[in-house]
Amino acid sequence: MNEATIEVTGLRKRYGPTLALDGVSFTAPPGKVTGFIGPNGAGKSTTIRVILGLDEPDEGRAWVGGHAYQALNHPLRHVGALVDAAAVQPSRTARNHLLWLARSQRLDAGRVDSVLGQVGLTAAARRKAGGFSLGMRQRLGIAAALLGDPPVVILDEPFNGMDPEGIVWMRALLRTLATEGRAVLVSSHLMSELQGIADHIVAIGRGKILADAAIEELLTGEQVLLQTPAPAEAAQVLQRAGGATTVLDDSTLGISALSARQVVEALGRSGVAFAEVSTRRATLEDVYFQLTNEETEFRTGTAVRR
């Protein structure tokens, strides 16, 4: 297997009464930014902790470049990860934080200065990390992840607390890392952050994988936007006609899996009033809501049957 691959198969993990992971499987391929998306509490961080050998799954395995994480010698040279940007000792300087990490991987101090430069923290290198803003801590965490020049990079919510300039920087960095051939796994609960940079999407909800596909496959569909005074009735009609609907606001529905013409015909047959029909390209957000909606419908469906 390529060094730069994350492969996760059948992860199941229970914390007390909650099933945090319910059969999670996916692959993050080399040279791609894989967006790991899902609402808070969906199981993103748990999955990442399992990949890093921090949490033990009840079932299933996680492989990095074909190896279990615990079996890696100098693991940070294989996998760089940002798990929690707040996880630094406040009294230690940024440079010293990276220095002990470098020592643990038999890397020389030159790497420390080089990654500090890469994340733009050279000027703050000798300041105590306790005084850093969340955005600066994120940069320090990224520096730690890049320290061992690893073929696999895993970043858990790296956009949190970043200012707009930081977000632009982060997006460019993610692209660069993927272009260099690395497997980049980035989690986020905000789809917009990953729009335009993720090549591959793994969507997770309630511990289950909802989608694992290239972005082009997910973003194929055009979405039909419908303005109607009766969105509930319209949704019913359109779902019967085979469409998937999302309520966007009081009077707007997003419809996929039906063309604009099919929407107009279906509504005409049923005599549901509408004001306007338009189309737009699906965004990552649409796809995501569609995926999570299907999940919700499935759940409410079973509840009703009982």
Binding site: R49, L52, V83, D84, L101, S104
Partner: peptide
């Protein structure tokens, strides 16, 4: 202190054994 700050995870990621 490492448990307090969460740095224990960084330590264990660096030294998984």
């Amino acid at each position: 202190e490492e448990y307090g700050t969460g740095m224990i995870r960084v330590s264990l990621a660096a030294v998984p054994r």
